[in-house]
Design a protein around this nucleic acid. Structure first.
Lengths: 221, 221
DNA sequence: TTTGCCTTGTTATTTAATTAACAAATAAAA
DNA sequence: TTTTATTTGTTAATTAAATAACAAGGCAAA
């Protein structure tokens, strides 16, 4: 208990990187590697070796000098930190292209984190199964989330339905939400919320592309 | 020229928020509103009024005291900053579920930023049109990107093809890349790169959900 | 054995972003 | 007319994150 508490002040960015380190490490392990240096991890992730070492320091893992980190041990440790012992169930609301894309990404990958239900209002989709994930009618959201003890919801409905969907998920007792619509949603404090807006991301890329071009032009002069 | 340069030190987060403010403002405008207060924008975006005012200060926009900001003017100013005068063309590589989801999100929305081509290797998809976006064979990437003067590429191929796709896009002269595969890619300095990893995001949500639960438990004791 | 080279682990510094604090302006109310 | 409430704009302080700096350990080669 006390140990686990020590991880709740890890920087958000470190949590994200740990997840990425683990995937890279699993790949290395499958290729027969047993140890890895911080600069190797850094190269794979396109970050600096210092940042890798600092992250590992924060989770209290020590490598061996001149031999690097034990890949198997590190994978296990990261799992202890970021995975839930019992596993966490996830539901996707909105089985359009984005919802299905997410299911494909996840299918059979992470066993501690499983997408167990999809919801939609389209009668053509209801009753079908996508990559092993059954699609239920939106009206049954509360019932199924409670029955299956689903704790995380991913919102991939059209933007205009985002906030209503969020409310329904919260009412159903969801603990964490991931909102992929461009419409910001409002949830109670006890629900962890992460939002990602694809339109904004693309506009940002466009801005920096433009910015660099105009910098180049003014340098030429 | 000199004015534009003044925007190249805007914080990245501010750029992202400007894009979001604009969308919110367009919605308000369409409802007949002409002015808006910082705290109204803040409520819509679930941030603080101070942050809104600070962002607007950075772009040099002044509202009128006790009347707020002129929505029309502000929309135009944000456009001047983040849009490219001539517009920027975008290509999507990988017309799977995620690629199609992005096309749906964008279709007909932002006229300064247009998805004009999709690429895939699947013969069933090649030659089709999705929401007005034609799907070309991957081999024609360079040819079409050069011909259409496409500057931004979005990578939505399977992870194992990510880096090869990135190389092809860079070779074709792309200026900005948005990588949605969980595999980090490597691009030259002159290419602006943004990466987003859905698996990591979901693992992060799961971590914080778990963390809060174990905090609650230890509080009960 | 000794020297030099890597590599880790940690602290210090710098940079980025958010939040707090508050002066100034002005419309509305007293 | 004077006071009060509200809202903007800006500087200062705080927090979060990344980067730099460097001591210490230990293998390999001389």
């Amino acid at each position: 208990m006390e140990e686990k508490d020590s991880f709740n002040h890890l920087p958000h960015k470190t949590i994200a990187r740990l997840s990425q380190y683990r995937r890279a490490l699993l790949l290395c392990l499958s290729r027969g590697k047993s140890h890895i240096f911080s600069h190797e991890i850094a190269t794979i992730q396109h970050i600096t070796p210092v940042q890798v070492r600092r992250d590992l320091m924060l989770i209290g893992y020590s490598g061996t000098l001149r031999k690097g980190y034990n890949i198997r041990e590190l994978i296990d440790l990261i799992g202890n930190i970021i995975d839930s012992d019992e596993g966490i169930k996830v539901a996707i609301v909105g089985m359009g292209n984005l919802g299905r894309a997410l299911i494909n990404y996840f299918s059979g990958k992470r066993h501690k984190l499983e997408i167990v239900a999809g919801f939609d209002t389209n009668p053509d989709k209801i009753g079908n199964t996508m990559n092993g994930v059954p699609c239920y009618p939106a009206e049954r959201m509360k019932e199924i989330i409670e029955r299956e003890k689903i704790e995380i919801g991913i919102i991939t409905v059209p933007a205009q339905n985002a906030s209503q969907t969020a409310n329904e998920l919260v009412a159903a007792g969801i603990k964490g939400l991931l909102n992929y619509t461009p419409k910001p949603i409002d949830v109670p404090d006890y629900v962890y919320l992460e939002e990602y807006d694809m339109i904004t991301t693309l506009e940002k890329v466009a801005f920096y592309v433009k910015m660099r071009q105009s910098e180049e032009e003014s340098n030429k002069k």
